[in-house]
């Protein structure tokens, strides 16, 4: 089976991650209920005629994808695979509200057409005139992970050589705000703002100068707190690794009551560097793609920014990173990277 390498990683996030060459050097402290991404100058990447119809998720997705391809020196990927939990929620809200206000008489075509979850993958393909495999996964907080697994399988089974894979989410105007309000009902809700963003990667079967190897991805719908440590150990053992092989542990802590899962897994990694990232990205269904961008950047640059340290000291070099994410005690994912 062929190995899988991440050859480029690009993210548009609440931080200055797209246009800056630095790596989370000057971070913005996030506050409030929701936080928007820092939008780049889209006109550098998308023709104005196309831009006028695009909602934020489409603009972020197409732009991040375009830069990821450019960074990997790829003009035509063999597959385009996206993951999103909420899809193009802004256009969904628009056409549903229009149906209500027009007494179900008139459907606004543009927002209806662009409300589907696969709009971003489709717009990337249209822009590239790419007729290759194109798929979108929507499985709540493991949407991006399923997209990544699809990319991994295509490369391992030699169905593709270069796959563009990404995760995206947008805030929209209403539904996410209502969802955020639910978090504040008791004191156990998510403690970081709800966010948005787009992270895209070129994964390939060919290694390049900046490659980071994607060893394995594991997705689990449910794991109890009693069995999370064993599940993690089994995942590592399946990949011929032991706890002591891990140099850096990155968790998707968001401050809610389910951080107990991260506390339990962190107990296994007392002597290594432990990192977190959602205080910088905000929480959203594909925030783990921002986590992957962070881990890729650590390995390719051999640099750990102070802003993401949760516990432990920065070691001089890092070779294997384990990422762990879950949402509300469900949809757990482990991702292993190596350089």
């Amino acid at each position: 089976m062929k190995k899988v390498y991440i050859n480029s990683a690009v993210t548009i996030s609440a931080q200055d991650t797209f246009e800056s060459d630095g790596f989370l050097n000057a971070v913005k402290k996030l506050s409030g209920k929701t936080v928007a991404a820092r939008y780049p100058n889209y006109k550098d990447y998308i023709a104005p005629a196309n831009l006028r119809r695009m909602a934020e998720a489409v603009k972020m997705g197409v732009t991040a994808a375009s830069k990821a391809l450019k960074d990997a020196k790829i003009t035509q990927p063999d597959a385009i695979i996206t993951g999103t939990g909420m899809g193009c929620i802004d256009d969904t809200e628009k056409f549903l509200n229009a149906i209500i206000s027009n007494d179900e008489q008139f459907l606004t075509p543009t927002s209806f057409i662009q409300s589907t979850h696969n709009t971003v993958g489709a717009q990337i393909a249209l822009g590239l005139e790419c007729k290759a495999y194109n798929n979108t996964y929507s499985h709540a907080s493991v949407s991006f992970e399923w997209a990544l697994i699809d990319a991994q399988l295509r490369l391992q089974q030699e169905e593709s050589e270069n796959v563009l894979v990404g995760g995206y989410e947008e805030l929209g105007k209403e539904i996410i705000t209502y969802r955020r309000m639910m978090e504040d009902v008791d004191g156990l809700g998510i403690q970081v703002p709800f966010g948005e963003g787009a992270s895209f990667f070129v994964v390939s079967s060919e290694k390049t100068e900046h490659s980071v190897e994607l060893i394995e991805i594991g997705v689990y719908s449910t794991i109890s707190t009693e069995s999370i440590q064993d599940s993690l150990k089994q995942f590592l053992a399946k990949n011929d690794l032991d706890l002591s092989d891990i140099d850096v542990f990155v968790s998707g802590r968001n401050g809610d009551g389910f951080d107990i899962y991260y506390d339990l897994t962190a107990e296994l990694f007392e002597n290594i560097t432990q990192l977190q990232y959602k205080h910088l990205s905000g929480e959203f269904y594909t925030a783990s793609a921002f986590g992957l961008w962070t881990a890729y950047s650590i390995l390719s640059r051999q640099e750990i920014p102070e802003a993401i340290i949760f516990k432990g000291e920065i070691k001089s070099d890092s070779h294997i990173i384990l990422l762990y994410n879950q949402f509300k005690g469900r949809d757990h994912s482990f991702i292993l990277l190596k350089r």
Partner: peptide, 13 residues
């Protein structure tokens, strides 16, 4: 053509 659809809806509405 998508704009044409929007115009048709506008004429009706």
């Amino acid at each position: 053509s998508i704009d044409a659809l929007e115009l048709i809806v506008m004429l009706d509405k």
